[in-house]
Amino acid sequence: MDIVADPQVETEEKEIDPQKEKEVFSFPDLVSREFLAIILACVVLCIWSLAQNAPLKAIADPNWTENPAKAPWYFVGLQEVLVYFDPWIAGVMIPLLIIFGLMAIPFLDPNPAGVGEYNFRDRKFSVSLFMLGFTLWFVLILFGQFLRGPNWQFYWPWEDWGVQKKAEQQLVNFSTLWGYLSVAVYFIVGLGLPALLKPSFYKQLGLRRHLISWILILLMFAVIVKIFLRIAFHVKYILVTPYFSI
């Protein structure tokens, strides 16, 4: 009679497997490290709080507008995006897309590699994309926080805010035809090309995940494209419709 693998034996074998990672008691090895981290963080925070006072300006006055009125720093990136998009996109759609896009990541990434380690080699595509988005978020924050002055005009940090800046050059829109055409081409090429160039990756994702992933990726790049068009060619809207403009 053949010997059927006994699950009991299997687990026992695993336990004497030298590859299995070594364990230590959480108390004291883990708890003591956490305790140290807590003390260190508290000390840093106390020194910071002694050295620097939280800002407080004059009492709120609806009749005296702060110029520039800046959002808290973590939203300044979105405020900077307001230059390039209408408020319903910059202030509502982009934040919602970021939140839902982030939530969707585990369900879109088909690659099982790199769990529990810093591994760029086996995850070049996903890590590059995430780092790009993460960097973009902070670049926009730094830009809005340190390079924007009154009326959200561009000022170098050493420039005097008292000196008035020229109004931005006349802005232009794409014509309606070119608008629809360029948006259509952007998405058709953007959704089609990756499937043609990397058929194996497309097969791995399947149609639905492919579409959702690439729409999210294309939208992220669209933000960069629109910022570039605005700065380089003074484009205000790519697509103008009677209901909304992008």
Partner: peptide, 22 residues
């Protein structure tokens, strides 16, 4: 909550986004 100029105008700017919701 501090109810100073920074607070008032930051929230004024921020809450305009809510008015922009499609």
């Amino acid at each position: 909550l501090p109810w100073d100029q920074i607070a008032f105008w930051a929230i004024t700017v921020g809450s305009k986004m809510a008015a922009a919701t499609p």
